[in-house]
């Protein structure tokens, strides 16, 4: 609505300066307050345009769900019953009443901590291995077939082996995260390294950059867009794996909470936990994407 106002103001000013006396300074008739409002209006409009459709979708889903789950034979609870039964979980994510009676926010944080450790390890090792594979033909020949086989192993299939190796649930869960997240990091890094333009390599040669300088001054920034694609896929897979791994290893995480809720038939709790997991997974993805966007802001524009 604001844009026409702004246009009118400009048009008005132009007419005044054309027809009037050029020596005189004429103040714009429309004050600055109006133009600020005019500038803010499109932003608000943009937010509205982006916010309204998903809200409508959510409302429709809830409505459909309410109708579908309201029947007497329904095995799943409708949204209204979830609200009644699990209100404390939704409204108080950070309550603390004993070692197992804690809010979902704390559980999510415990799971996130495991993901943070496992994923960080996967990122560091993955970038280094990916660099090796991308840089050396022999490393590609030797390692790539092994990677291609190992990366198809489902995350949970690693769990018994890692439990046997580490004899403790915490490092086992972290290992599962690590082994799940590392493959896309390796593969994307390798592609990024292979795609470094020959020109950059020539610049490095003329400057006589050594291996270490070449790695962090040319390779990593040049391959950064690819590396961050890998990291983004990796963090998503980590979040998928942690929930499954925690169901089996127990402890405090969000995964075990779901398993525990299932064993005591608290379906409403499970559904609330699913929403938490989905939102956090979404935020994790956006976080990595945002970091990638900031880090690679130069690389992508050329």
């Amino acid at each position: 609505m604001g844009q026409p106002v702004l246009k009118d103001a400009i048009a008005g000013a132009a007419i005044v300066s054309l027809t009037g006396k050029p020596s005189e300074v004429l103040p714009l008739p429309a004050g600055p307050s109006k133009s600020v409002a005019a500038r803010l209006a499109p932003l608000a409009k943009g937010a509205l345009v982006n916010m309204v459709p998903p809200l409508i979708t959510i409302a429709l889903i809830l409505l459909f769900w309410q109708i579908a789950a309201s029947g007497p034979q329904s095995s799943l609870p409708p949204p209204t019953r979830i609200w009644e039964e699990a209100k404390d979980l939704i409204t108080e994510p950070f309550y603390w009443a004993g070692s197992q009676d804690i809010g979902l926010g704390w559980r999510i944080l415990v799971s996130l901590q495991r993901v943070a450790i496992g994923f960080s390890l996967a990122a560091i090792v993955g970038v280094l291995l990916g660099t090796l594979v991308g840089q050396s033909v022999w490393a590609t020949r030797g390692l790539d077939p092994v990677f291609q086989v190992l990366r198809t192993v489902p995350p949970l299939a690693w769990l018994p082996l890692s439990l046997a190796a580490f004899r403790d649930s915490q490092p086992s869960a972290i290992f599962v995260i690590f082994i799940t997240a590392i493959w896309p990091v390796i593969i994307n890094t390798a592609v990024g390294i292979r795609n470094i333009p020959q020109d950059y390599r020539n610049v490095a040669k003329v400057l006589r950059l050594n291996q270490v300088e070449f790695f962090y001054k040319i390779m990593v920034p040049s391959a950064a867009p690819y590396i961050f694609t890998g990291l983004r896929i990796g963090v998503g897979l980590s979040w998928l794996a942690i929930v499954a791994a925690e169901m089996l290893t127990g402890g405090v995480g969000i995964g075990f909470f779901i398993w525990d809720a299932w064993n005591s038939s608290r379906l409403s709790d499970i559904i609330v936990a699913l929403v938490y997991i989905g939102v956090v997974g979404f935020l994790l993805d956006r976080l990595v994407a945002l970091i990638g966007h900031v880090v690679t802001r130069g690389t992508a524009t050329n």
């Binding site: 333009p197 950059y200 610049v203 040319i218 920034p221 690679t296 130069g298 050329n302």
Partner: peptide
């Protein structure tokens, strides 16, 4: 083609 590093 100038070969400037685009991130610098």
């Amino acid at each position: 083609n100038h070969s400037l590093l685009p991130w610098l």
